[in-house]
Structure formats: C-alpha cells, structure tokens
C-alpha cells in the first residue's frame, strides 16, 4: 500500500508570533519555520507503517513556496521515499490545498493519505476532511491509533467525550492527533541520504485546480490583553480574595 503524507511549512511552534503594525498579518520575516507538528506525527505514522511492512512506499507532498522543499527534505530524512512540491507562492487555503492533494491522489493512487489534523498557523482543521469529501473517501480524523487491515483501516479517534473507534474502507484519509506517536528526530546519516532522494516540483497551475483563496483577510489584530493580577501569600488570602473580591466562590 502506498501512503501519501501531506506536510505544511509553518512558523515554528516555539516562536511567539507578532502581529504586523499595519494589521495585514503576522510577521514571518526572519522567523524560524518548521514542519507543522501534527504533520511530523503524520510522517512518523507512515514511516512506522512501512517499518511494520504495511506500507510499501511513502510519498510526501507539500503545497506552498519554494522554501517548503526544506520541510519535504525533513520528511525524507524521517523516512519518506520521495517528495512532491506543489509550488505556489500565493496564499493557500484549505479548500484549494485539498483540491491540489486530490489531483495528486488521483495520480499516485495511494491506499491511505495521512495529514496533521490542523496546522498551528491558521488553526483551520479542515484540509483532511475536505480532501476526503472531494475524493469521496472515508475520513478518520483526530487519530490516536491507526491499524490497517485487508481493505479497511481501524482508526481510534480522540473525541470530546473520550475515544471512538471507526472502521474505514480503504482508500481513506486519516488526520493525526497528538497521541498517535512521538515523531523521531532525523539522524545525520539520514539527513545526508535525504538529499539524494527524489523531490519533484510541480507548478500548481499544471494540476488544473483552483487554488485561489475564498476568504479575504480584512485585518489581523492582537487579541485583548489580559492584565496580570496579584500574587497572594497564602491559601487563606486566596480564598478571601475569591470570596470577597472576585466573588466566584
């Protein structure tokens, strides 16, 4: 079974983002960029499936600017076999990305597509569901366990009340949650090897899909700041404040 994994290049999770003064977005100049953490989990899961003999080939794909090649190289160093960059310097949104991924899925014919459940920049949590819809496939979102069988895959999902297990007909789309696995660090020899793995660049226009954003961002602003409070010296003082000042107990 071929596995297709989609990854996104995002502002590193350790970076405290700053809203630009003109309100057009957040400042991404000279900011450390990394693979979206949920996508690292997606790559790791694919690699584990291959190590377990359940996946034959891992194709990793990203839709984004030229620099997303670095993100793809990281995935190759983790164990993916080859990479495809759908190059697009314009802003991309989940529906357009899902359409590009659909075009690639139709070409590559994977048995399983794995994506992170959300990217930590736009926090959209949509692309996997949209891809599944466009392909007419089943979706196993927020996965904490993925067990492929003959023609199906059992996916345990993290839901509000606890866990839910569903059986999906293959091919299917899976999106990863935090507890699915702990991604490995790429070793130096593997990083060197990844440089020789094939990385194909495809122009978004050549896929014949409409990547144009549907949502226009009118403004990006700082959230309302929470004023810091006070330190209390004892449990007694805390209880007194909660009773008489905050009046919440």
């Amino acid at each position: 079974m071929k596995v297709l994994v989609a990854v996104k290049r995002v502002v590193d999770y350790n970076v405290k983002v700053r809203v630009k003064a003109d309100g057009t977005g957040v400042d991404t100049a000279n900011v450390k960029m990394s693979m979206n953490p949920f996508d690292e989990i997606a790559v790791e899961e694919a690699v584990r499936l291959k190590e377990a003999g359940k996946a034959t080939e891992i194709v990793v794909v990203s839709v984004g600017p030229t620099q997303a090649q670095e993100t793809l190289r990281t995935a190759l160093a983790m164990g993916a076999d080859r990479a495809i960059l759908v190059q697009s310097d314009a802003e991309t949104q989940p529906l357009g990305v899902a359409k590009a991924l659909k075009a690639l899925a139709e070409k590559e014919q994977p048995g399983l597509v794995i994506l992170g459940k959300q990217a930590i920049d736009d926090d959209a949590n949509q692309t996997g569901q949209m891809l599944a819809a466009l392909l007419g496939w089943a979706q196993g979102t927020f996965a904490s366990k993925v067990v492929p069988a003959e023609g199906t895959v059992a996916v345990t999902r993290e839901i509000d009340g606890g866990l839910e297990t569903v059986d999906l007909k293959l091919p299917a789309v899976v999106t990863t949650d935090l507890r699915l696995n702990e991604p490995r660090y790429a070793s130096l020899p593997n990083i060197m090897k990844a440089k020789k793995k094939p990385l194909e660049t495809v122009d978004a226009a050549s896929l014949g899909v409409d990547l144009a954003p549907r949502l226009k961002t009118l403004k990006v602003a700082e959230p309302a700041k929470r004023a810091g409070g006070v330190k209390v010296g004892s449990v007694q003082e805390l209880v007194a404040k909660l009773k008489t000042e905050a009046r919440v107990i």
């Binding site: 989940p94 529906l95 692309t127 569901q129 979102t141 927020f142 839901i159």
Partner: peptide, 18 residues
C-alpha cells in the same frame, strides 16, 4: 469534535470555504 469533523466535509462538497 463532531462539528470540526463534519463541517469541512460539508463545505468541500458545496465547493465553499469553511
């Protein structure tokens, strides 16, 4: 988790953003 699972699938089938 119910809404987040369903709404993007609805939007994509309608060919609209979510």
């Amino acid at each position: 988790t119910f809404g987040k699972n369903v709404a993007p699938r609805v939007a994509a089938l309608l060919d609209v953003a979510q």
